[in-house]
């Protein structure tokens, strides 16, 4: 059994356990349809960002600008939407325009990130830290820090409606997870992304177009933030620029929990997917228990550290030797 599979199985067990505990401890609150739907509706906002961080780690870097790309894209969409009555186009068209504008803005931000990193050889952490401030500053400048509202009803319905009983944002989440899984495990681009993260020099020597892969990767990462912005603005029907400050920690935590190697080269979409579900259940439980957001952050920080320590012991020492002797025989080639 490979490490990846072992990790995913662990996560599945954790998820099932957590759900079982919640159901047992507070069956009325937890199993209520409304609650389940709420969880599914809220999850995608940060889940998409977590996928973004996962991709960033896979290519060997990190992207700290996700939250501000979300802000900026959301602001752009909100600006169009809040003036929908003055725009001489059918509401549906305006909505589509707003969504495209949000995604376009996000893509542009990702492109800028990618260009700074690939053309100027700026390490991703510094580049995205800088652009994070830039995009956020832009969002503040445009909105002067205030809210935007007055969105068309149809737009608000996007995130707040259900399909077959499941909130639309959750369908988006599943679709994104499937697409990313396809990308990373089955496509040539995904393969090249992993190899780039494993070693940029060897990748280059192998004929990979590093620059193209970097650009595409960062655009994808930012598009995820843009999609998240669309879902968010639709759900809460307003937009303010400093939403989601805490999401960075959460996204990193989920990526690590999901088995992503922060040095690059290895990732599991399924792992992050399961980690997201498990953590959402935990977060909901913590709300029922009356935990404050501060305590949640405290616990997330603690959880991140604990998980990394566990990974340390898993990757070194006795466990590895045991694993090798017991599990190697079950491995098939091909």
């Amino acid at each position: 059994m490979t490490t990846k599979r072992a990790n995913n199985v662990t996560l599945l067990i954790v998820l099932v356990t957590v759900v079982a505990v919640m159901t047992a401890a507070m069956p009325d609150q937890f199993l209520r349809l409304g609650n389940l739907q709420n969880m599914m509706r809220n999850l995608p906002e940060y889940a998409l960002l977590a996928f973004g961080i996962m991709i960033a780690m896979t290519i060997g870097g990190i992207d700290l600008s996700g939250v501000s790309v979300l802000s900026l894209s959301g602001v752009v969409a909100a600006m169009i939407l809040s003036h929908h009555q003055e725009i001489p186009l059918p509401t549906v068209v305006t909505m589509i325009l707003a969504i495209l504008a949000a995604l376009g803005t996000a893509a542009l931000c990702g492109l800028i990130n990618g260009l700074i990193i690939s053309l100027a050889s700026v390490p991703a952490i510094i580049a995205t830290l800088g652009t994070n401030g830039l995009y956020y500053g832009l969002a503040i400048g445009i909105t002067k820090g205030s809210h935007l509202g007055g969105f068309p009803l149809a737009y608000i319905r996007i995130a707040n409606n259900d399909f077959l009983g499941i909130p639309i944002p959750f369908w988006v989440f599943i679709a994104v997870a499937l697409l990313l899984g396809l990308l990373l495990d089955k496509t040539a681009l995904g393969f090249q992304m992993k190899m780039l993260g494993a070693s940029p020099v060897v990748a280059r020597f192998s004929g990979t177009k590093n620059r193209a892969v970097l650009l595409k990767s960062f655009v994808i990462i930012s598009l995820l933030a843009g999609a998240s912005a669309v879902l968010l603005t639709s759900k809460v029907a307003t937009m303010r620029p400093n939403y989601g400050q805490d999401y960075l920690l959460l996204a990193v935590l989920l990526s690590i929990l999901g088995g992503t190697n922060p040095d690059g080269g290895f990732s599991s979409v399924l792992g992050v997917f399961l980690a997201i579900l498990a953590l959402q259940v935990l977060a909901t439980g913590s709300t029922f228990l009356g935990f404050t957001p501060f305590f949640r952050n405290f616990l997330y920080g603690l959880l991140l550290l604990v998980v990394m320590v566990i990974h340390h012991y898993r990757d070194t020492g006795a466990w590895t030797i045991l694993k090798e002797s017991v599990f190697t025989r079950t491995e098939k080639s091909g």
């Binding site: 496509t187 090249q192 070693s199 192998s206």
Partner: peptide
């Protein structure tokens, strides 16, 4: 790529020639 599989190390040079629709290998 030291930590990647033998199989992946061999095919890195030719993955882009094995693409079907949507870039799937």
């Amino acid at each position: 790529f030291e930590d990647q599989t033998i199989a992946d190390n061999i095919v890195i040079t030719v993955v882009d020639r094995m693409k079907r629709f949507f870039g799937i290998i």
